[in-house]
Nucleic acid binder design. Structure first.
Lengths: 174, 174
DNA sequence: TGAGACATATATCGGACCTAAATAGGTCGC
DNA sequence: GCGACCTATTTAGGTCCGATATATGTCTCA
């Protein structure tokens, strides 16, 4: 729907592109899906020969594929899922040394800042499309809120860390 | 680590409890994991007979299990994953009727508000544990930021919706 | 000029995980 | 007494991810 594309390019969309913050899909899903959708008449495939590399297979959405997408978008959407190993580790801060907790917060902050930078780059360059701006703006406010919270409250979780003195498991929620 | 528990109770932790916003796991993961961890000596299991129901199997973390948890928490954590079908649909707002887009925003707002209410209930009742407060607080600010953004910018995505007049696909990002 | 890192490009295996249903009875409200 | 919902475990089926294999081009830096 976003234009003719190869599996490789679709993967990049999920890794660095417009989709990267709120969506995910990997080669193990993308290539089998392209094959299946072509068999079902949702896509057409044009192979372009290249020297020294596998053929570049460019896929295009058919009218039927577009109809199927529109129908899919009319059916109920499931609620967001947000998974965080950082949060998981934070729950058990009381059994970790303070240094490790600080390290976890630093890593989380670095991830958020990187994500925010990527989003703001995209916002600065492609201000053309309103749905794109809406999606990027959503990611931006969520990342900003996370960063602000971590900066303001990191001492709370760092204080919860178990120094050598505290007994194992003291302070873990019941 | 959070106390002796059954598989059923662990599931509730992921569905409504402390873990529900940032983590997920279902019976299909929980029960096999409990069996495997018991075989590996990470857990012990005590079956309590109940009339008319399957035995209630109460699992307890062993010293070895606790050590393995601590080691796991010292190994690198992967970055957060945030998946949203709402965002996916928003990207294609231009091929949907305005009514459908408004419906999607309403549903997303309802989900966020429900989540926020659950978090704030938990914050109001259990203010005992600092790591718990930190985790709930993180969820709270993220949900608040989402709700605020949706309320302030919903007209942007609703305006991007394709009325009957616009051609299919006009306004979809390139 | 050469080494190493990174990008292009597709494909697939193994395993982890989720969804959903099956099973069986209990409690609570109306 | 009926229906809705809660307790409690188990598993079959299918989807999806992570990692790797395969081959080659390009860019950087010494």
């Amino acid at each position: 729907m976003l234009g003719d594309s190869t599996g490789y390019e679709i993967n990049k969309l999920f890794e660095d592109g417009l989709f990267s913050h709120f969506l995910d899909a990997s080669y193990g899903s993308i290539y089998p899906a392209l094959t299946r959708l072509t068999e079902q008449g949702m896509l057409t495939c044009t192979a372009e020969a290249q020297d020294g590399r596998p053929d570049k297979k460019v896929y295009s959405l058919t009218a039927r594929g577009k109809k199927a997408l529109r129908e899919a978008l009319m059916s109920p959407v499931s609620p967001d899922k947000h998974r965080s190993e950082f949060i998981f580790a934070s729950i058990f801060a009381a059994m970790l040394p303070g240094q490790r907790v600080a390290e976890l917060v630093d890593a989380q902050l670095a991830n958020c800042r990187e994500d925010l930078a990527r989003i703001e780059d995209a916002l600065a360059s492609d201000i053309d499309c309103s749905s794109k701006r809406f999606v990027l703006g959503y990611g931006q406010v969520v990342m900003k809120a996370s960063i602000e919270y971590l900066e303001k409250h990191r001492q709370d979780i760092e204080a919860a860390a178990s120094p050598e003195t505290a007994p194992d498991g003291a302070g873990i929620p019941a």
